[in-house]
Design a protein around this nucleic acid. Structure first.
Length: 418
DNA sequence: TCTGGGGTCCTAGGACCC
DNA sequence: TCTGGGGTCCTAGGACCC
């Protein structure tokens, strides 16, 4: 029988910080989103203080109860590297591992000649030992059930971080008690829809006629329902799927009113997206741009966007030129812009036959871009960059509490006193 | 009275995820 | 003062075609 496992790092970003700072042990810690906006990772101690996922930190930090909370700006270089280490430990022990998100990995636990409880306990111990990250593991006959088991492993102390939902009777018991919105794939809208139909628990949902589910929630809902019944619809893929799009966008540290500032920001976003594109040997054949005002501060809402199919390119200069000309007509004076971004889609392998009508020599373009990337790899990011991406950036996002990149930057490595 | 029907492709937008 | 960013998948609807 197929068995899917899901392992995830507890309060992953916080745990990454703790791995390098013993003083954080047993303290309430939060890690904030970009621009130091919302709390996106909280230790158990911070959760106990009532700090919610996604809570705006500028409000929460004013509460006297949160006085002793230690907070960090997010440090993705560190978290991505810790995630990679976790993946490597797992890959050495499990036949097939799918990296689902930065802190979650699906495991193929089918037909292993071990007691799964012992085996999974061993995995947790190994990660704890080698990566210094506490984890939880849940498993069951489908990914959706594994995800649910993982949540129980985390929330219910009786499980001690390991939850087995392979037994249908065990599932039945939980399905009666758990609300439909605990399920992976059931979001706010769908759960409201179901509740209007009198469906509140997972047991209610599983009992619905599949045809009814299909017509109410389309194939997406039907799939979730089948998965909850133990019929596996979602496979495990241990090869990295080629990506479909690249987004580069930021909220600004201050509101912007001038076109020149927006233009400069978009140029930098295009530059960043192009770097990602080339790192993965891709070209983009579609580009969109967006800008918007702040939806929270009472300003009038203005959020135009535009997109265009383009001659496939990974040349930073092309992407900046196109993004700029696409965005310029969208900009209106009188608005205070809080965020802008670009996204690249219709991605194709870079070594594909160039277009007959390519507007510049693909060889020369690629050579120039490769040279720029090589120089930046060697001497540091943005040693070389397009002049249109001025980096004085009055609009640079806030990052008031950035921790060192302990594992990916030699200058920031941990120092040990002897 | 009665103005086709069915197919493909593309895109925008919605919903969900971490 | 201050509310993230980057993804995927699905559907509806328009354009186009025969």
């Amino acid at each position: 029988m197929a068995v899917f496992g899901l392992i995830d790092g507890n309060a992953f970003y916080c745990s990454c910080q703790r791995a390098f700072e013993p003083r954080l042990k047993q303290r309430p810690v939060v890690v904030l989103s970009n621009n130091d906006g919302c709390a996106i990772a909280r230790t158990q101690e911070a959760k106990s203080l009532g700090i919610k996922m996604g809570e705006p930190w500028h409000l929460a930090r004013k509460h006297p109860k949160n006085r002793d909370v230690i907070w960090y700006s997010s440090n993705y270089a560190l978290y991505a590297d810790m995630s990679q280490r976790m993946y490597e430990v797992l890959s050495a022990r499990v036949p097939s591992v799918e990296a689902y998100s930065i802190d979650e990995m699906f495991l193929d636990l089918s037909n292993l000649p071990y007691d799964l409880n012992d085996f999974c306990k061993g995995l947790r111990d190994d990660i704890r030992h080698h990566v210094k990250i506490p984890t939880c593991i849940g498993w069951g006959p489908t990914k959706t059930i594994a995800k649910l088991a993982n949540a129980l492993a985390k929330e219910d102390p009786q499980y001690n971080g390991l939850c087995d939902l392979t037994d249908p009777d065990q599932r039945k018991k939980w399905y009666k008690r758990l609300s439909i919105d605990e399920v992976w794939g059931i979001g706010r809208k769908v759960s409201e829809k179901l509740k209007r139909q009198g469906v509140t628990t997972i047991a209610d949902f599983v009992a619905l006629d599949p045809h009814h589910t299909r017509s109410l929630l389309t194939v997406v809902g039907a799939r979730v329902q089948a998965e909850l019944k133990g019929q596996s619809c979602l496979g495990l893929s241990d090869v990295l799927q080629p990506r479909k799009g690249i987004v580069s966008s930021r909220s600004f540290g201050v509101l912007l009113t001038e076109w020149e500032d927006i233009r400069e920001a978009l140029a930098l976003f295009a530059h960043r997206a192009a770097e990602t594109l080339r790192r993965e040997d891709l070209q983009a054949a579609h580009l969109s741009v967006m800008m918007r005002t702040n939806p929270h501060n009472g300003d009038p809402w203005y959020a135009p966007s535009a997109s265009l199919s383009i001659e496939p390119t990974s040349d930073t200069r092309d992407l900046i030129r196109i993004a700029t000309s696409l965005a310029q007509p969208l900009w209106r004076s009188g608005f205070r812009y809080a965020k802008a971004g670009i996204s690249l889609n219709d991605l194709r392998p870079i070594h594909q036959q160039p277009s007959l009508f390519a507007s510049r020599s693909p060889e020369k373009s690629l050579a120039l871009m490769e040279a720029m990337d090589a120089i930046n790899a060697r001497y540091g990011r943005d040693t070389l960059r397009p002049a249109s991406t001025k980096i004085q950036q009055g609009w640079r996002p806030r990052a008031g509490m950035l921790s060192p990149r302990y594992t990916t930057c030699l200058d920031e490595i941990l120092r040990v006193q002897t």
